Computed example of a mutant assay.
Amino acid sequence: MTTTHVKPTASKQAGESLLQVTDLTKHFPIRRGLLQRQVGAVQAVDGLTFNVARGETLSLVGESGCGKTTTGRMLTRLLEPTAGTILLEGHDITHWSTGKLRPLRRDVQMIFQDPYGSLNPRHTVGTIVGAPYHLQGIKTERGVKREVQDLLQLVGLNPEHYNRYPHEFSGGQRQRIGIARSLALKPKLIIADEPVSALDVSIQAQVINLLEDLQDELGLTYVVIAHDLSVVRHMSDRVAVMYLGNLVELADRDDLYTRPMHPYTTALMSAVPIPDTERRSKRERIRLQGDVPSPVNPPPACRFHTRCWKAQEICRTEKPPLAELAPRHLVACHFPENADMPGSSDPAALQSSTAAGSAAGSAAGSVAGSTDHDAQEPRG
């Protein structure tokens, strides 16, 4: 079986930002009655702020329904944001019209999750991969057919597949066709929505390695949407953790995996399979109690407090800001985990900064000084 090569740690965030997202929000209205009056809204994404450096891979992770795919579709402007701003190379593209967005499609492309549903079964591979050239009116010196055949070869397919139809290919080959289509216009940013989740495990590693090789060769920037934390660890430079439409933690890959600070991230990491039985037996498995709340009526303040073993009164009344609790490590939590590990700031200072001088600040200080046993007892 093909194995993936672990991506080396990079410090690309310090470079030039290609994408900047500020307070990005998407609410889907709920309408009822004969007049279709709005009676509520599904708060799919609520106030995301992050940036992506040129040549970087940022991964969005979280449970199903946390807003990852909605975020990706807003970044490609397949969905209109409710609020916030999206800056691409300094240009505000948040509310551009359809006509103005047409040139943008050359710079931003998307790889879809389903390699079966994203390809038109009535069209040949040559028509599918060559469609971007025709839609954008791009003329090539060697002709569209030659360009498409070169792209097929670039993604590991035979140029002779030009006249074949999607049903003649396996799932991994279909995903390679989708990747070739996204590369046709030489984009600067690619949004990859669960690019390997629909593929066999034996094929996933091949596609992951292909995406990394293409990034090195073409200088691509990725925003990867995924829930498989093992895949994310191989591909990412930085990882952003989402919960119920909010960003709860953002950090460099290695820092996040070795020292998760938000309780939700800690619970996610405890669920990652470990092949070594000895290490697996020593690891504490955190099982969250209760179900994910409805995005129609999310909990006030910290949205994770209904399932968090460290939640206290301040978590129910005051929303924690996304603050830098360690170098390049942003966390939105009043009582972060692993705050006393090497490389972190002073735990008492962290608690006092997140409490923002409120009356509950003294409670935050007492929790920071509690033992690990006391903090983890309600986990179940």
Rank of each mutant, 00 (worst) to 15 (best):
R259P: 02
R280I: 00
R287P: 00
R280Y: 00
Q289R: 15
A251S: 15
P295N: 03
A326G: 05
V331W: 00
P320E: 02
E249R: 06
R287F: 09
A323K: 13
I274F: 00
K319P: 06
S281W: 02
K282F: 00
A326R: 03
H262C: 10
R283V: 12
I314V: 15
M269L: 15
I314G: 09
V296R: 13
H329R: 11
T317W: 10
P300T: 05
A271L: 08
R283I: 11
T265Q: 11
Y264V: 07
C315P: 08
P295E: 10
D291L: 14
D254E: 14
C308Y: 09
E313Y: 10
E313V: 09
P275I: 00
R303V: 11
L268N: 04
R287E: 13
A251R: 04
T258M: 09
N297Y: 08
I314F: 03
P263V: 09
A251C: 02
R283D: 11
P293L: 07
L288V: 12
C308I: 04
A267N: 07
L330T: 01
L250N: 14
D254G: 04
I274D: 02
F304M: 06
E284A: 14
A301H: 09
M261Y: 01
C302V: 06
V296I: 15
R328N: 09
P263G: 10
M269H: 06
A251W: 03
A323Y: 00
E313Q: 02
C308S: 07
Q312H: 05
D291E: 15
Y257T: 04
C333H: 10
H305M: 09
C308N: 05
M261S: 14
C308T: 07
A326C: 08
A311F: 01
P273I: 03
I274G: 00
K310H: 00
D252P: 14
P273Y: 10
A251Y: 01
R283M: 13
E278T: 13
C302E: 07
T266G: 15
P260K: 03
M269W: 05
E324M: 13
F304P: 03
